[in-house]
Design a protein around this nucleic acid. Structure first.
Length: 274
DNA sequence: CCCGGAACCTGAAGGC
DNA sequence: TGCCTTCAGGTTCCGG
């Protein structure tokens, strides 16, 4: 599942292949991947444009074009962007191919067809959906404290809410709460000052460590060169480690459901009552 | 605004 | 072997 560290890695590793190059064509193997504008207008506006940069907003990739248009890409759950040669066979589940003038193809693979592309003039509509970027300097413990105040939703649900904080998904939410020793069902507003500090630190440490490891290849995530990230080797609880042993207390990792999402945690190290 | 639940989608995995 | 059900989860929508 591409979350902030995976999307950040895709951005970083895609950049050298694409910046300064022109898009010579886009093959839409599945047209439904383009949400906006019409397929016809999408083609006419994107072909011939030079890629000038890529940024990340939460889990969104924003590819800037010389025309001023922005190509917004969201990989959702099973999407990946793989670099290949013009002559290479499209990987399985390829939904779109971006052809560049350097004989390079970007293959947009996506098993479940949830990923999207959108051509827009500005990023207002995605930025309005996103809370603070957790790795920016402006995301301080005080900011987190203020946002948690009076919230009655479980902390796990808040971490998954992109408007509360951008970029965290199901895997990293579990890892962060484990690291912070906070039970996923605790309500946001009930966290002590000490717990909020631990949570803030855990968010930044877990996400930076995952970026250092080029993301977690637990499902269908691959780096643009087709290799796997290694962040999942550091997971203590997330993604199917239920039943395994907590590395700290030796007790079993449990699985519960929070907001219809599989949630892994250690009941001993993350007690419900403090 | 806040909260929770369901829907969207498709392939993998498990039960029988 | 094969049919059927269940599960996975980022985002969006809807109801209270």
């Amino acid at each position: 599942m591409p979350e902030l560290p995976e999307v950040e890695t895709v951005k970083n590793e895609l950049l050298p292949y694409v910046v300064g190059h022109r898009i010579t064509g886009v093959t839409l193997v599945w047209e439904g991947i383009v949400k906006e504008p019409s397929v016809k207008e999408f083609h006419s506006r994107i072909i011939g444009q030079e890629i000038t940069g890529i940024t990340r907003h939460g889990k969104y990739l924003v590819v800037s074009l010389s025309s001023g248009d922005l190509l917004i890409i969201h990989l959702r759950m099973t999407g990946s962007l793989i670099v290949g040669q013009d002559s290479s066979e499209p990987p399985k589940y390829t939904r779109a191919i971006i052809h560049l003038d350097n004989k390079t193809n970007i293959f947009f693979r996506d098993q479940r067809k949830f990923g999207i592309m959108r051509l827009v003039r500005d990023t207002k509509d995605i930025d309005n959906k996103l809370g603070p970027e957790p790795l920016e300097a402006s995301f301080t413990p005080a900011v987190l404290t203020e946002r948690l105040a009076k919230r009655t939703a479980p902390i796990k649900a808040l971490l998954l809410d992109q408007k509360f904080i951008a970029g965290i998904g199901n895997m990293y939410a579990d890892e962060v709460l484990y690291e912070a020793r906070i039970h996923p069902q605790r309500t946001g507003g009930s966290l002590s000052r000490e717990e909020v500090k631990r949570l803030h630190k855990a968010i930044q440490r877990i996400l930076w460590a995952a970026i250092d490891n080029k993301g977690a290849s637990v499902d269908t995530y691959f780096r643009p060169d087709g290799t796997e990230g290694t962040a999942h080797f550091q997971f203590k609880v997330a993604h199917g480690l239920g039943g395994k042993t907590c590395p700290v207390c030796g007790g079993p990792i449990e699985r519960i459901t929070v907001r219809n999402r599989g949630t892994y945690f250690c009941p001993k190290c993350q007690p419900e009552k403090v």
